[in-house]
Structure formats: C-alpha cells, structure tokens
C-alpha cells in the first residue's frame, strides 16, 4: 500500500478546508514526474529482482512486479541512484524525450 494520486479540486469552498490543522494522511494531489530530465528504464532481461534499487530509492517509487521491479513514473525524479546501485547494470538512465 502506498499513497495514491487524487483529483485536485479546482474550486474550494470553505467546507473543503480542514477545520483544524489535521488532515488525511498520505493525501497526494500533484505528481513529481515533471522534475525529471532523465528516466530510469529497467531491463527485465538483466534484472534479478535483488531489490537493491527498491531499497535505496529516496522516493520509494520502485516496486516489485513479478520477478523483477517496475517504476512509478508519476513520482520518480530521475535522481539516478537506482541506476548506480544496480550491480547488474539492469537500469539505464535515458534522456526524457518531451
């Protein structure tokens, strides 16, 4: 389980604001994808599922997917730590196209 993206209301009425300084935990309304200039791409052929990249990702956006791992590109910032930690060179950092 991890927090998921919600629809950000564009119009807020007074009732929408919390009446104290407390609010729902793990409430996400914006992505971090736009920060990226490079994107990590997993080579499923090379990946052994050792989970070292999963462990070291500061954003926690790598998750198990079958025997290998996959990336939540909505929240990956392209820091490159995963690519550097992978001993099998199963992660390539590719320039973002758009």
């Amino acid at each position: 389980m991890k927090p998921h993206l919600r629809n950000l209301k564009t119009k807020w009425t007074l009732q929408d604001y919390p009446d104290s300084t407390a609010y729902e935990a793990g409430y996400l309304t914006s992505k971090n994808a736009g920060w990226r200039s490079v994107r990590p791409v997993i080579d499923a052929e090379k990946c052994t599922g050792c989970l070292q990249c999963y462990l070291h990702c500061p954003d926690g956006v790598i998750f198990k997917s079958g025997k290998v791992v996959a990336i939540d590109y909505d929240f990956c910032k392209g820091c490159g730590i995963c690519g550097r930690i992978c001993r099998l060179k199963a992660i390539k950092m590719e320039v973002e196209s758009k």
Binding site: M1, K2, P3, L5, G26, L28, S30, K31, N32, W35, R36, H56, C57, P58, D59, G60, V61, F75, K77, G78, C79, G80, I81
Partner: peptide
C-alpha cells in the same frame, strides 16, 4: 508499504531516504 511518498525533496535527497 510506503509512508513517505510524493514528497518534494530534491532528487537524490539523503534525508528523505
């Protein structure tokens, strides 16, 4: 489970890890 997700720390931030 992930408990610190979607945060706005700089890319590669050690503190967030």
């Amino acid at each position: 489970d992930e408990f610190f997700y979607g945060h706005k720390a700089c890319a590669g931030c050690g503190g967030s890890l």
